[in-house]
Simulated assay, not measured.
Amino acid sequence: MKTISKTIQTNMSKYNYFLMAFLVAFSFSCSPEDGNDGAVGPAGPAGANGQDGNANVISSGWVEYDESNWSALTSEFGIEYRYYPLSVSTITQDIVDDGMVLVYNRFVISNTPASMLPYSGNITGGEQTLSFEIELNDLTIKMRNVSGSGDPGTFGGPGIAEYRYIIIPASGSGKTSNLNYSKMTYEEVINHFNLEL
């Protein structure tokens, strides 16, 4: 029994020695300093031009309100509104179904910063709310008194106030996913889509 055990130990020692010699030889044969680098290959063909991340986003720029564009006083579910209708052909059915429209307002006369609609404040005296709704090819800015009753009045003309809309398709650049634009400032949204202020 001792002879078999001694034979196994001797064979294991030879095996370990052989394995160590092999690993040392292999590590020297793979040295990175052994050869020179090859010549640089030719440049590949130019890739196709990609679209900007905001290629599908549509922005109106700032537009001055025209006081004559406000509708007559209209009742909607017992609340009295004035409407400011806009024809916007880029509000397609895909935008209505899956896209997003942001509308901003700013009062030039008082130098107030741009605010996303809905907006509430002293617009024509007292407290009014500006909101909007979209339909195929249409955007309507709506104004009412915060109380919901009475004529909110109208505003517009040179140097008074301006509106701007931004249309964001759902299938655009992927920039719309998981973002809450209502928590972003106007400047953050503009910078996000690389649009002009």
Rank of each mutant, 00 (worst) to 15 (best):
V40K: 07
E64I: 04
K183Y: 01
E187Y: 11
F77D: 15
I134R: 07
Y84P: 09
G121E: 05
T154N: 07
T10Y: 15
Y84M: 04
G44H: 03
S68R: 08
S147D: 15
N105I: 13
S87I: 14
M20K: 09
Y119T: 01
D52H: 10
Y104L: 02
L136A: 10
V108L: 06
G159V: 14
V63Y: 12
Y65Q: 00
A21K: 01
H192S: 03
Q93M: 09
E133P: 01
I8W: 04
S182M: 08
S5A: 15
V24Q: 04
S89V: 15
I134K: 06
S182E: 10
S59R: 04
A114T: 08
P113L: 01
G121A: 00
Y163W: 10
F77L: 14
N178Y: 05
E127S: 11
S60M: 03
G157Q: 02
G61C: 03
Q128C: 14
S173V: 12
M143R: 02
S31Y: 10
P113Y: 01
N178T: 12
V57C: 00
P152M: 00
R164Q: 09
E188D: 09
S182Q: 03
L73I: 11
E76N: 15
V57A: 04
Y119M: 09
V146T: 14
N137E: 11
T176L: 10
P32V: 03
S149P: 14
G35T: 05
Y83H: 15
F193K: 12
I8G: 02
P158G: 09
P85N: 05
T176F: 05
N105D: 15
S68D: 04
A48N: 01
E127N: 13
F193P: 01
D34Q: 12
Y65R: 04
L117C: 04
D52C: 10
L19M: 14
K14V: 15
N191S: 11
Y17K: 09
A21M: 03
D97Q: 08
T185C: 12
D97Y: 08
D151V: 02
L73H: 05
Y186W: 02
V189W: 08
M100D: 12
